[in-house]
């Protein structure tokens, strides 16, 4: 497989990526369309972006979404990291199988089931639906994604560092914060970003678990999308796509750089020995 790419390979990649990206590119292009009609190009204009600024419902929903994302991603990162440590560093304990099942199942569970079951729980325990309930719901499904991301980092790194620290008398909790956490930090950060993105993108689970005063941006977009394609919605979507793209690329560059620094430091340390 080192002979380079054949024509067939190049074609597979070109067509595949065209399929993945063309619809998004078209959507963004048409958000700058002056015409109200979707298919007619009426010249370049930013008027849909301007009209967004006056759409208070959307702005309010965006604010709810951002707060929800920040809060739920942070809680999910803490819980997800604990879950990853449990799965990789705690050995056997009673109920381990059930635990790993509960961590992996939400990754593939259809959203309608997660949403419905959580809503029924909230009704059963008499918790009023609103910002709190939707936050709990988002934490629950996104912590599992964090756990998987952090876990893959935990299984792949050199445990002798942790062992050395503990042999030298460092208590387990300190070892975690001084040795383990700095090493797995890139994974924890990408876990947080994943949780944040899942939260701001989620529609179905929010529909079930939210209540008055906590309408999220995807819910607003969904209700207008059902009525047809609108240039204003193209503009909101384009902004979201832009933010996500910048965030993901910036994060991957930062991770790469941190990784290189670490490798360099490790090499320097090894050479200095």
């Amino acid at each position: 497989m080192t002979k380079g790419l054949s024509t067939v390979n190049v074609a597979a990649l070109t067509l595949g990526f065209a399929f993945l990206y063309l619809p998004i590119v078209i959507l963004v292009l048409y958000s700058f369309n002056d015409s109200q009609l979707v298919t007619v190009w009426g010249g370049f204009s930013t008027r849909w972006y301007v009209s967004l600024l006056h759409n208070e419902q959307l702005l309010e929903a965006a604010w709810v979404t951002v707060r929800l994302g920040l809060l739920s991603a942070t809680v999910a990162t803490v819980l997800g990291t604990l879950a990853a440590v449990t799965l990789t560093r705690m050995g056997r304990f009673r109920g381990r199988t059930l635990f790993s099942g509960m961590v992996y199942a939400p990754l593939v569970m259809p959203e309608v089931i997660t949403g419905l079951s959580m809503l029924l729980l909230f009704v059963a325990i008499g918790l009023d639906r609103g910002f709190l309930t939707v936050t709990i719901a988002h934490v629950t499904f996104s912590m599992c994604f964090v756990a998987v991301v952090v876990q893959s980092r935990l299984v792949s790194f050199d445990r002798s560092l942790e062992e050395a620290a503990m042999d030298l008398g460092c208590p387990p909790f300190r070892t975690f914060f001084v040795v383990t956490l700095p090493i797995i930090l890139p994974a924890v950060v990408s876990g947080w970003m994943l949780a944040f993105t899942l939260s701001i993108d989620d529609l179905v689970i929010s529909q079930f678990t939210t209540g008055p005063g906590a309408t999220t941006l995807p819910m607003r977009i969904y209700s207008s999308v059902r009525l047809g394609v609108k240039p204003e919605i193209n503009a909101v979507c384009s902004i979201l796509i832009g933010l996500v793209t910048i965030g993901v690329i910036a994060a991957s560059i930062a991770t790469k750089r941190a990784e290189n620094e670490r490798l360099k430091a490790e090499r320097a340390a090894a050479a200095g020995r």
């Binding site: 993945l20 998004i24 078209i26 298919t39 993108d201 977009i221 394609v229 193209n234 793209t245």
Partner: peptide, 30 residues
């Protein structure tokens, strides 16, 4: 970079990606 290019669309909301197809596939679509 190729892996990144595969992952990137996943970070974009499913709702947005589905919405993009409405404008393409509808009878008066692109």
């Amino acid at each position: 970079a190729l892996v990144m290019a595969v992952i990137l669309p996943f970070w974009t909301s499913l709702l947005i990606r589905v919405y993009a197809w409405i404008g393409i596939l509808s009878p008066e679509g692109l």
